[in-house]
């Protein structure tokens, strides 16, 4: 195990931010920590890193207890914090060189590592730029370069794509997968389920300081009852329609949202044709219609009764 967290409990005053939080991360994984705002992702990461005090629990990294003085462990870790952590007064090159230099003393070796890191995030043309002159997306890339230049075995990224344009986002996500292929174990926190689905080999869903489900995306989706979700635009929404639809076979739930009817089917059942037949025979006028496979949001919704994103 690269990381093993047991019964971690952390309070901020009266607020319980982590409540018997358990997590295991194996070598070579990209573990996605998915949870809504305020669910405790950042708190969990900072406790794991021994930056935050906690009331209860144990944290082992590479089989050793993590502590502020565990320098041999720190040497293997690269962190990318939720807030951009670079110096305004240093250029892109200097920022990466400064942080890399806290790990690597050899100047020549460091120079090639810094250049490699700039290449990696696509900042090679920006070496002499000050952070103020970088766009939001480029700044995030610099933030990442500062955390990975020393080639850590374990990389922890806390929402590295917040407020980032699609181009930089793809660059970042691909980069993380590349680091993983090169051998790094990755923990990636996000509240974007699409990102997590796209790159993570395993996902831990978090709510109110607890892990509520873990598995790869297929496993997670298999945990819930609902399968395909159909949305139909109905020009004259009536309660009668709702009652009828709920009586069709294999329907788990149906509800109106304005003039849109959402129908969820049982797992592995296909209800699209049945529904269209029903609408036609009753001569109910309908417009747009689409069907989607279940998402992690559905998983979250079914377990917690609320949406992942508000």
């Amino acid at each position: 195990m690269v990381i093993s967290v047991k019964n971690l409990t952390k309070r901020y005053g009266d607020l319980v931010a982590l409540d018997h939080f358990n997590l295991e991360v194996g070598e070579g994984e990209i573990l996605g920590l998915l949870g809504p705002n305020g669910s405790g992702k950042t708190t969990a990461i900072n406790c794991i890193l021994s930056l935050l005090k906690y009331e209860k629990g144990s944290i082992d990294i590479y089989g050793k207890p993590m502590a502020p003085e565990a320098y041999d462990l720190k040497r293997k870790i690269g962190i990318i914090m939720q807030n951009v952590a670079v110096f305004e007064e240093l250029t892109v090159y200097e920022n990466i060189d400064y942080f890399c230099g806290l790990y690597i003393s050899d100047k020549n070796k460091r120079r090639s590592l810094v250049i490699e890191a700039m290449d990696f995030v696509g900042l090679n043309d920006y070496g002499k730029f000050y952070p103020k002159k970088l766009s939001g997306g480029l700044l995030r890339r610099l933030n990442i370069a500062c955390g990975i230049a020393h080639k850590p075995d374990l990389i922890i990224l806390d929402e590295p794509t917040v407020a980032v344009d699609p181009q930089s986002r793809n660059n970042i996500l691909e980069g993380i997968q590349r680091l993983n292929r090169e051998g790094a174990t990755v923990i990636y926190t996000s509240h974007y389920m699409e990102e997590v689905e796209q790159i993570c080999t395993r996902i831990a869903i978090m709510d109110k300081g607890k892990i509520i489900a873990t598995g790869n995306k297929e496993e997670l989706k298999a945990m819930i009852n609902s399968g395909e979700k159909i949305t139909v635009e109905i020009y004259n929404p009536e309660n009668r329609i709702l009652t009828d639809v709920k009586n069709l076979p294999h329907i788990v739930s149906a509800f109106f949202h304005d003039s849109f009817l959402t129908v969820k089917s049982e797992r592995d059942k296909n209800n699209l044709m049945v529904l269209i037949d029903y609408l036609k025979t009753r001569q109910i006028a309908f417009g747009k219609i689409y069907s989607e496979p279940p998402t992690l949001n559905d998983v979250f919704l079914e377990i917690t009764g609320k949406e992942l994103r508000d």
């Binding site: 720190k74 040497r75 962190i79 914090m81 952590a85 670079v86 110096f87 942080f99 806290l102 500062c146």
Partner: peptide, 24 residues
């Protein structure tokens, strides 16, 4: 400020490095 993790993000990053905080 740049060495206390509760005061700046740069400090949190530096604190995570293998160099003793007091030395930095």
């Amino acid at each position: 400020t740049v060495n206390q993790a509760n005061l700046s993000a740069q400090a949190a990053r530096a604190n995570m490095s293998p160099v003793h905080k007091l030395r930095v």
